[in-house]
Computed example of a mutant assay.
Amino acid sequence: MKLVIPLFFLVCLSITAQNTLSLEEGATSPKATLLDVEWMTGHWKGEAFGGITEEIWSPPLGGSMMFSFKLVVNGMVNFYELGHIKEVDGTLLLQLKHFDGDLKGWEEKNDTVDFKLVKLEPNKVFFDDFTLERISDQEINLFVVVGDNDGNQEEVQFNYKRQ
């Protein structure tokens, strides 16, 4: 019986992050262009973290696709993200910065949160702990591994519908 509890715990941990992948140490990102993620272009809305989420993605231009994210809880902006996916050395890199509702940055001035490309599938793009999934022309999922101040991590799903 003592073995069953740790085994169950390990199985539950492996189940919690089934939609994201991590880039192995020393691995290189596969070749890719913005054409591989162009389907993200548009205005998307969903629900997460107890509120309304919104993402707006621009079409490819100048070697990048820009995006903005907003979380509104109880009628107030909780936080924003601004970022882009850009072509770098024949592959893709997703970078973002967080801001509170008053546009005060969370990261240091010159720091970004970076997600290297791990794998491409026809309707899924796996960045390091961040996955974009095309369900249809009108629906997408984003999966991201988030952590808390205690070092705990979990995979969160965002489901969006095109606006």
Rank of each mutant, 00 (worst) to 15 (best):
M40Q: 01
E47P: 09
W57P: 05
S29L: 09
I52G: 07
F69H: 13
G63N: 00
E47Q: 14
L13M: 14
L71Y: 05
E25W: 13
N19I: 13
S22I: 11
A27C: 07
E24G: 13
M65D: 06
G50P: 10
T28C: 06
S68F: 09
G46K: 02
L71S: 02
S29Y: 04
C12N: 08
S58Y: 00
L23T: 09
G62R: 00
E54G: 02
F8N: 05
F9R: 14
W57L: 06
E38P: 05
G51P: 08
L71M: 05
P6Q: 10
E47T: 15
E24C: 10
L13H: 11
P30W: 13
D36G: 03
F69M: 15
L10E: 07
A17Y: 04
G63R: 01
A27H: 09
V72T: 15
E24Y: 09
S22Q: 14
W57G: 03
I15V: 15
G50H: 12
C12T: 09
L7P: 04
L34K: 01
F69V: 13
V11C: 01
M65C: 05
F9P: 10
E25M: 14
L61N: 15
L7R: 07
E24A: 14
G50Q: 13
E55R: 12
V72N: 04
V11P: 00
M66S: 10
L23N: 05
M40L: 13
G42S: 03
G63D: 01
P30M: 14
F8E: 08
E54T: 05
W44V: 00
G63Q: 02
T28H: 09
C12H: 07
E25L: 12
E55P: 06
V72R: 05
L23I: 10
I5S: 08
I15P: 09
F69P: 13
L35P: 01
K45F: 03
L10T: 11
A32M: 12
I15Q: 15
I56P: 04
L10A: 12
S29Q: 05
P30T: 14
S58K: 03
T41E: 15
G26L: 03
M65F: 03
I52C: 11
S29G: 04
V37I: 04
M40C: 02
L61I: 14
G50S: 13
T33R: 03
T28P: 02
P6L: 11
L23F: 07
I52V: 15
P6E: 10
G46E: 02
P6F: 08
G62L: 00
L23V: 09
E38V: 12
G46L: 04
K70F: 02
P59E: 06
G46A: 06
P59C: 03
F9K: 14
K31G: 10
K45A: 04
V72K: 09
A48N: 15
I5K: 08
S58A: 07
G50Y: 13
